[in-house]
Nucleic acid binder design. Structure first.
Lengths: 113, 113
DNA sequence: TTTTCATGAAACTATATAGTTATATAAAAG
DNA sequence: CTTTTATATAACTATATAGTTTCATGAAAA
């Protein structure tokens, strides 16, 4: 039985939110704790309007939470789980790099013989 | 110390490959084992050229492997790890749905009182 | 009130890419 | 040789969206 494509679509959408470098940068800047928009802009070096749009997308996806406090608005990671995801992928990618350099070494050995 | 954006970019690219419904459908059709392109087309209902392009992207990302056999070309999951990723996200999404329906029930209770 | 600051949103441009149609390639069947 | 089958590729269209510029809003400061 093929999985219901409707459920798969939600998974795809979730991955899509995490598939932009700028959004990952915003998330990483929030890893150390709640920050307001200005702080996020400073830490990431992204444009103000751009950060605002990304934060909206992240909030709609339920990945960050939004809480106005005084003049400014603070954002916070609502699903720390995303860092597990990113780590899993990162580990897999570095594992792959290691394997590749290992194979290169073996090729070198063959060439010298 | 902010993570090197270069590493983050690779993570984002990996998520991007998984962020398309059609590609997830192709991957799911390969979950039960190696299949040739025609079989993938039949199981997913996607167009031939479209499937071919998606398979190329998946192969370049190292997620599937390509092995010509006789007349046809067989593709196979090279990183079963992706199904773990999809399951993690799927579980998280259904958990969220559960929480939401739970909250709805509590609201109903309040309304009746 | 006027100015400044923090955030959000609209409008626009530029780019990427999903899907389709048509064609290419190559091998087997007739 | 010609046709069919299996896959890949090129060219094209349509759409989505990242980033920017500009403006809006609202609250505090001057």
């Amino acid at each position: 039985m093929p999985l219901p494509p409707a459920a798969l679509a939600h998974v795809a959408d979730y991955f899509k939110v995490l598939s932009e470098l700028s959004r990952l940068q915003v998330l990483c800047s929030l890893k150390s704790g709640s920050k307001n928009v200005t702080e996020i802009i400073e830490e990431t070096g992204l444009g103000q309007a751009n950060v605002s749009k990304h934060l909206k997308i992240l909030a709609q996806a339920g990945i960050v939470s939004r809480t106005p406090r005084g003049v400014s608005v603070y954002y916070e990671i609502a699903e720390p789980f995303i860092f597990d995801l990113c780590e899993l992928v990162g580990d897999r990618l570095s594992l792959r790099l290691e394997e590749q350099s290992q194979q290169l070494k073996q090729l070198e050995g063959l060439r010298r013989a």
